[in-house]
Design a protein around this nucleic acid. Structure first.
Length: 427
RNA sequence: GGAGAGAUGCCGGAGCGGUCGAACGGGGCGGUCUCGAAAACCGUUGUCCGAGCAAUCGGACCGAGGGUUCGAAUCCCUCUCUCUCCGCCA
């Protein structure tokens, strides 16, 4: 959530930034925050003064009792009951006001960075650049959902049998390809100096709140009711929550973690016409990178993260473009976000395979993730994360773009990992 | 699943209902000594909220939430979590 101090000190800036998200009535919401904040502070002042008084009397009673002056102690005792009632009432108001303030803050998304274009939706996103060459496929080329059947490498029907729609079964070279991509991505991250993390894929409620999946995206996560745990929708959740309630020192920074996990998303209500095959799944594999940096370093690191994700697509010889998301298309937590989209040549569609975001202090504020700066002052850090990369759509593009008369060609960079350079037709 | 124990500061660990933000030890940081280091010695070492330009002052926090009391880390209740033993088991 946004920092109250920032809203207080830069009201206009916050409002104009949030307007890029095209949120209706944002001024009113922000002013409501400021009013509640004022109320809260006024109440606290009054509350603290009364408590101080009451603490003072209690101390005096203690001393009087000790020196045996019972009557004087009794006299003071009588004075406290009225004080107590007033403190209780104020304390009640204080909690209520603080709660309303908190609730309101939870509902306000992050303020977009200066670079973020104003816009309502995907059409207002800006293509930063496009790389790689788009293959010319023959007329006989087919989308990946046909290829996986022809080559018998991914089976959706079996997944339905075991679990349900959106839980594919990877078979033979299809399964090997998954494993190869995961290892390739992890090795690439290790070469860039990332520390590898293998986190739990079930997390508790506190972790869900820490990275902002809760409360707003409750319905998008699978919940294990018996134990009140959630299946992670992304490794971002456990890997970032590693640093919940942590105060780092400057020497620890920057932190660069990478981790592979399966990801689980209910995707309630988001199945549409274009959602076929690997384009959207309930369970998928992803290597995630997470950076934690000093505020002044985060945008430099953000660029490095996207560049790293792009280098993976370069190595896989996939055509892609980098898209700077506009205010209206950006996730709730992000201040700035790039998407990487690969071109799946048979579908003739751009598919998002990575989303790299700088959250600035938005997550850190909830996580209470801070560091001591050079002057010994404790302040919030910046958190960033990105996919590097999510597998299914990479696989979709690999299959579609590399299909040929002999089979599906595996890009050279991946061959050491797969152990084969082509997926041939069975029989 | 059964039985028991516990939750205190960066860690270990003490804590009669008042003077406890908390003894003591370790660690960290700064310093003295040293060519340097170790050792020794000295000092220092929490977070959040509020007021203030600041020094500083007030309030809160000893797993979480309630209660008793003029006063709770200390007493009572509820919840959560952790550990140990037994059972089961990759």
């Amino acid at each position: 959530m946004l920092q109250l101090s920032v809203i207080r000190e830069q009201r206009e800036g916050v409002i104009s930034a949030l307007k890029k998200r095209r949120i209706p009535n944002i001024e009113q919401t922000i002013d409501q925050v400021l009013t509640l904040d004022q109320d809260r502070r006024r109440t606290q002042q009054e509350h603290d003064e009364l408590l101080a008084e009451s603490n003072r009397i209690a101390r005096e009673i203690g001393e009087l009792m000790k020196s045996g002056r019972k009557e004087e102690a009794e006299a003071r005792r009588a004075r406290t009951s009225d004080l107590k009632q007033r403190v209780a009432a104020l304390s009640d108001t204080l909690t209520r006001t603080a709660n309303s303030l908190q609730q309101l803050l939870y509902q306000i998304p992050n303020a977009p960075h200066n670079d973020v274009p104003d816009g309502a939706g995907p059409d207002d996103n800006v293509v930063v650049h496009q790389r790689g060459s788009i293959p010319e496929l023959p007329g006989t080329a087919v989308p990946h959902w046909d290829l996986i059947k022809q080559y018998d490498i991914i089976d959706f029907d079996l997944g339905v049998k075991l679990t349900g729609a959106g839980f594919p079964v990877y078979k033979g070279k299809g399964a090997k390809l998954q494993r190869a991509l995961i290892n390739f991505f992890l090795d690439a991250a290790a070469k860039k100096g990332y520390a590898e993390i293998q986190p739990p894929i079930l997390v508790n409620e506190a972790s869900g709140y820490g990275t902002g999946q809760l409360p707003d995206k409750e319905g998008q996560m699978y919940r294990v009711d018996a134990d009140n745990l959630y299946l992670i929708p992304t490794a971002e959740v456990p890997i970032t929550n590693l640093y919940r309630d942590v105060i780092l020192t400057e020497r620890d920074l920057p932190i660069r973690n990478a981790g592979y996990t399966p990801c689980f998303r209910r995707e309630a209500g988001s199945w549409g016409a274009h959602v076929r095959g690997l384009n959207r799944l309930h369970q998928f594999d992803k290597v995630e990178i997470v950076h934690i940096t000093r505020p002044e370093d985060s945008y430099k690191e953000h660029e490095e993260m996207v560049a790293h994700a792009e280098s993976l697509l370069d190595a896989l010889e996939l055509p892609y473009r980098r898209v700077l998301l506009c205010g209206g298309d950006m996730g709730f937590n992000a201040a700035k976000c790039y998407d990487l989209e690969v071109f799946a040549a048979a579908q003739k569609r751009w598919l998002e395979v990575s989303s790299v975001s700088n959250f600035e202090t938005f997550q850190a504020n909830r996580l209470k993730l801070r560091y001591k700066d050079g002057k010994g002052k404790t302040q919030l850090l910046h958190t960033l994360n990105g996919s590097a990369l999510a597998l299914p759509r990479v696989v979709a593009a690999l299959l579609e773009n590399n299909q040929g008369p002999k089979g599906i060609r595996i890009p050279a960079a991946l061959v050491p990992y797969t152990g084969f350079d082509i997926i041939e037709r069975n029989g």
